[in-house]
Design a protein around this nucleic acid. Sequence first.
DNA 1: GTCCTAAATGTAAGCGTTTACAAGCTCTGA
DNA 2: TCAGAGCTTGTAAACGCTTACATTTAGGAC
Lengths: 378, 378
Amino acid sequence: MVTLYDVARQAGVSIATVSRVLHGQEPVRETTRARVRAAIEELGYVPDGAAQSLARNRKDVIGLVCVEHTGLKPNQYDIESMSLLFYDEVMRGVEARIRELSWSLLITFLREDENSGTTLAADGPVQSRLHILSGKVDGLLIGEGVVPSSVITQLAKRVPLVVLAGDMAQRGVDVVAADNWSGAHALVEHLVTGHGRRRLFHVDGPSTAPDAASRRLAMRAVIDAHPGTVLTGSFCGRFTVHSGQEAAERLLAETRAAGRPLPDAIVCANDQMAIGMVRTLTGRGIRIPEEVAVVGFDDIFPASLTEPPLTTVHQPMRKIGERGCDRLIERITNPSLRPRVELLPAELVLRSSCGCPPGTVTRRQVTRAMTNDKITER
Amino acid sequence: MVTLYDVARQAGVSIATVSRVLHGQEPVRETTRARVRAAIEELGYVPDGAAQSLARNRKDVIGLVCVEHTGLKPNQYDIESMSLLFYDEVMRGVEARIRELSWSLLITFLREDENSGTTLAADGPVQSRLHILSGKVDGLLIGEGVVPSSVITQLAKRVPLVVLAGDMAQRGVDVVAADNWSGAHALVEHLVTGHGRRRLFHVDGPSTAPDAASRRLAMRAVIDAHPGTVLTGSFCGRFTVHSGQEAAERLLAETRAAGRPLPDAIVCANDQMAIGMVRTLTGRGIRIPEEVAVVGFDDIFPASLTEPPLTTVHQPMRKIGERGCDRLIERITNPSLRPRVELLPAELVLRSSCGCPPGTVTRRQVTRAMTNDKITER
DNA sequence: GTCCTAAATGTAAGCGTTTACAAGCTCTGA
DNA sequence: TCAGAGCTTGTAAACGCTTACATTTAGGAC
């Protein structure tokens, strides 16, 4: 390994001078500078990042902890695995910011199942990996969903940290997330006031999923605000295409058995389930949106390819990465900042599964005016 | 910041003892161990990664340099941006290996256009970023395509390095890539011997793209091996859907003008162009594969969604990440290893755009027997 | 109690940088 | 010619950890 000393010897100067040349600091004679440059070039010197970090007391590295969805066939892209793209977008947002600073980005994937069973263990594999990681970075960006919030709160005491996405208000920790509530609210509002749908069916996510919760609340809010609007029923799915299909089967069976008509609209907690719903319904000859509207959430890529194309809500993942990174850097710079929750506007994407005319593609940012406290109280 | 000294003071022991407890080393009395553990917990001590790296003389970090495709609309998934997925798969492969070792992964994206103009500058922005990066890692995984090979060769002298994907034989540098040639060869061979197609048209990639080159050579090889088989023409596209549509327009115009029949099969250098081709052709009422077969390359997600579904070649990106990582670790461990080129089998994916019956989905790994030298000589 | 051995713990020298401070130059102006 | 100012350059002390080696301690055997 070539060190500063080697370069200094080769150039006939002291290590301080080499360091100065390396960082373009001023008081170095032009001839000396040239000599040092030549030595660096000749020896192929690369400054050791660890030593620099130690001396400068900062690493110029931030860590991003992503959620890795499990149960996917490797090497094969399908509709389920499209959700993978979320964190890839976040990552690109973060990287774009990081790059401007000449910092670096450390990535870790945490598998959804990795923490099951060890949630409460103070020293599970997840904790251990996060611990090692936090020693290598100046700050951490953590995707919500895998790490229990108690662990996050604990971790935040030791290292600057920002929680990304998700929907839970982490008390005392910075959060940057999409405004899921407003997205879902605008979506359902559109069905009700835009297309006169009154009898709604809900395909919900798992009760444990925090994002599903706020979507559910938003739907409730719209229904309550419009007399005459009712929730005719709901199904609790697992966010998969298959769940959506199950939901459809169940819905059809139940309405027929009871001799009731179909609902006017079906609101699904994510696009995968909406796609499953659309497939099964159209397979049974039911016309969408004429007989029933179907909407999803997330705007994954295949949502634009269904027949009819799916009306949904796009999540600003890249922006979440960017803003999360900005926030983290603020916090690193000024650790005494009061933690805040920042919600980014979601984007309502109107295609035609909601009843809008075929060929429609309208995008509209939606969010609500609010203060921190309103949000954290939610 | 809490250091070893703080913990040592709190526990009433020396820093050496704390360090031993930290790493579970043997000769420490149980009572002492407990005392130290308590102090660590109480103070919320996190070992400083930089200091550890410096003292241990290894960083337990490897860097991955990805190619970032440009000109994409942010926050919007479309067929073009599906190519983004390549590096995301590679990344997951690398991370899976890294994780087993408790190492970390540093990510950098290099934009395709970032290097244009400065290719030969010894100190362009790309070089500078790679330089900083290489000081922070034990080794580097570089996706081929952005960094000029002269820069790579240079870099490889200073830091353990493995080149991923691409197709170029980097002399004197480790390479792990997909066997594009065999994939393309099997694909064209299938058209010719499996479906009796004789008159082939080629939608090529940019002449500068190294992967396009080997696909072109493979096609040539099949044609030469089968008397009676001819290349009726070719079009040089830019790997986009739009290029594929242009190619289709041009092909139709020329064959009609010359009063010639359509070719039997159209071989596209990637899926995006094949999709553009399929769209335009079916739009003009031409039946695929009855009138003409169309095949692509890469097996991006939308390839399975066209009508008819596209026959193509899947690239084992995740495997490339895994094997590249293994190779890099070998090289870090033993820097005197002779550099090798390793080609991973590609996977022929038969759907129905080639003439196979509707509903077909057959996957077959393809590669050729070979030695290093044969490959590097190619 | 003494002595020996082995186990437990402590001391201090790095690791490769940065940077405050000291020291050495080269001028300029008297 | 020399003092002093202003550039350059060098010296050495951190930074927080690991680890070889030195030292202390505990536990037996006599």
